Amino acid sequence: MRKILITYFLVIVTLLCACNDDEPKGNGIALLKTTNPAPLSLEKNTKKELDLIGAIEQDVESFKELYDVSVLKGKEDILVAYKVRHMQRFHMKKIEKKIKKLLKEKYPEENFIVSSDYKIFLEAVELEENLKDPNYSTEKAEKRLQEIIKLKKELT
């Protein structure tokens, strides 16, 4: 009788622990969500700068293999982070090569860092969110952008 009670107790505790819902909602499909971050320039926000990064974003978004693009322009570099559609993940190197080729041909004077890495994309979106805060300085943002670029270079 005692073994049966212990067994029932363990089964109930296991079921209660398995049904625990501590995870934040939406974690399971975060890779599939589209955030559509606006392209940003850390430098002066002149019409020419905004047109440039807007055009870059449109050019990269024109690839049917992609579904979300983030463009950040710093003093010297432009970070282009994107998410690849699930069934196209087998062709990621080919997609990145096509994007780099298009950007080099269309904007030869710019220095691009192109990444399909999800962590780089998340860091770029987080930086864009931080830039909405008026207390977040452009020097701090440029430093963070350089850290993201360094992280990208370490990953390759």
Rank of each mutant, 00 (worst) to 15 (best):
L31H: 07
G26C: 10
P37C: 06
G28F: 12
L131P: 05
I99D: 14
N27C: 05
I95H: 04
K101P: 02
K47W: 07
K101F: 09
D133N: 15
F112P: 01
A30I: 12
S62N: 13
F90Y: 09
E23Q: 11
S115I: 05
S41W: 02
I149F: 05
A81I: 02
Q146P: 05
L15V: 07
A55W: 06
K44M: 14
N130T: 01
S115Q: 03
H86L: 15
T46C: 08
N130A: 09
L103E: 11
I148T: 04
P134C: 03
I99N: 08
S116I: 00
R2C: 04
L10I: 11
V114H: 00
L145Q: 06
S137L: 11
L5F: 09
E110R: 06
D22N: 12
C19R: 06
C17Q: 01
E105W: 05
C19D: 05
I113H: 04
K3N: 12
I29G: 08
H91L: 15
I149D: 09
L131C: 13
L127C: 04
I56A: 02
E57V: 03
E65P: 04
R2E: 15
E129Q: 07
Y82E: 12
L16F: 10
E126G: 05
K48T: 06
R85S: 04
Y8F: 13
T35S: 13
F63M: 12
F63V: 08
K132Y: 07
N111Q: 14
T46E: 06
Y118W: 08
K150T: 08
P134H: 07
K33Y: 07
E128C: 09
K153L: 11
C17E: 00
E43K: 13
P37M: 04
L145R: 03
L66Q: 01
F9M: 05
Y67I: 04
Y67W: 05
Y67M: 05
M92K: 13
M87T: 12
K98T: 02
E61D: 08
N111H: 09
K100Q: 11
L103A: 12
C17L: 15
K33N: 11
I56R: 00
E139P: 01
L151G: 03
K98A: 14
Y67N: 12
R89T: 15
L102T: 12
K104E: 15
K93M: 15
A30T: 11
F63D: 00
E147D: 15
K83T: 04
E43F: 14
N20L: 14
T34K: 08
K97C: 07
K119H: 14
M1C: 09
D133V: 04
T138F: 02
T14W: 01
I6W: 04
F90K: 11
Y136C: 10
K94N: 12
E65Y: 06
I4P: 00
S115C: 10
R89V: 10
N20A: 12
L10Y: 00
Q146G: 09
M1Q: 08
S116T: 06
L145P: 02
L131R: 03
K44T: 13
K119V: 09
N45T: 09
K143Y: 13
E76R: 13
N20H: 10
L50Y: 02
D21W: 07
L40Q: 11
D68S: 11
V71A: 02
Y136D: 09
N20F: 14
S62A: 15
L131H: 03
D117C: 10
P37L: 01
E142Q: 15
